[in-house]
Design a protein around this nucleic acid. Structure first.
Lengths: 179, 179
DNA sequence: GTGAATAGTATCGAGTCGATATTATTGCAA
DNA sequence: TTGCAATAATATCGACTCGATACTATTCAC
């Protein structure tokens, strides 16, 4: 079965790549959370949302984020609007850790850009299907959202009624609905 | 960066797929080990070799395999030749568990065979590069090995000097060296 | 035949993970 | 406005992963 082969390949690739994380004093779950937080906008950096993204639970993610904070890669930022929720901000040290590369990144570096783009698109399509199959939220980029309104500088979110900084419009949002 | 995107896609796919394992009372490490054992030949089912394949350590894998054995998915088979080594055999129950599918398999089921083959080849090339970059062993299929000699039925391994059953020649071998 | 390499395991500490329960806080409806 | 349900985060439990280290048994090479 080709499907089994692909499943096995994806898991092995991810596993080999994760092996390199340990040298960076992050485990795979911590790395995955940090990777997400680096790319997420300010509305999407709470334990609940990270849990949703990673297909995990609030309890687990809560612990993961606390341990990343202990290591100095994240900072808690309690919201004044909703006193229940917490947003985590990635620190400079966190950005440095997130930028570390493993064997997978090395392997990708040796491939030409056209092939990379084709592979990225294939995998993106596959992810879309897997997300549908598993009943997860899409978690797309702000800019490609139903509620996104472009402005001269940055944009505006019609759902949350807030102005968006230019670089925020390229970040992952948990409210995103594909346009 | 397209490379970052691909890295993130592969990890997320593997993560979403792993989520389904828990319903099958396996965790991702156990699933990965079981998947490998199903496809490995009789010379390649020891803790050391599994550790090598998964990019883990003997200690960790030893525990993982023991816990799979406790659940009835594996059976220990001590070798008489080398009394230090153990080979694990997958039971019927283990085969059933290994055959369970997650959201990733569902997603793959909706894609045409030509596209699947193209994707599988791309990922295989990527894996080869990642394996080289990480200094891991290739772990190819017996049939494509330097030491493989075809026979009317099955084949013969010139390295270990043993006859091979027909279906053994399609299994993963830790001694494999690409022809 | 002795010492080094190898195979497997036990143990330690930090952490994941699902499950469950608990505390704060918010929102809605009567 | 009170009251109750939903929500956000966390604590706790037990099984397990993971690297590191130490240990035993066995095999191999000189």
């Amino acid at each position: 079965m080709t499907t089994d082969r692909i499943r096995s390949l994806i898991n092995r690739l991810s596993r080999l790549d994760a092996g390199a994380d340990w040298e960076a004093d992050l485990n795979p779950a911590q790395r995955a959370a940090l990777d997400y937080l680096v790319r997420a906008n300010r509305f999407s950096r709470s334990p609940s949302v990270v849990a949703d993204y990673l297909g995990s639970t609030r309890g687990t993610v809560s612990q993961t984020l606390k341990s990343l904070a202990r290591k100095g890669y994240l900072v808690e930022e309690r919201s004044s609007a909703d006193k229940r929720s917490i947003s985590y901000r990635v620190t400079e040290a966190g950005l440095r850790e997130a930028a570390r590369t493993g064997p997978l990144a090395e392997a990708l570096a040796g491939i030409g850009e056209p092939d990379l783009l084709a592979l990225a698109n294939d995998l993106e399509g596959l992810l879309r299907r897997a997300v549908r199959a598993g009943g997860n939220k899409p978690f797309g980029i702000c800019r490609n959202c139903l509620h996104f309104r472009p402005r001269e500088e940055g944009g505006f979110c019609a759902l949350l009624s807030v102005a968006l900084e230019p670089d925020e419009t390229h970040r992952i949002c948990h409210e995103q609905e594909p346009a």
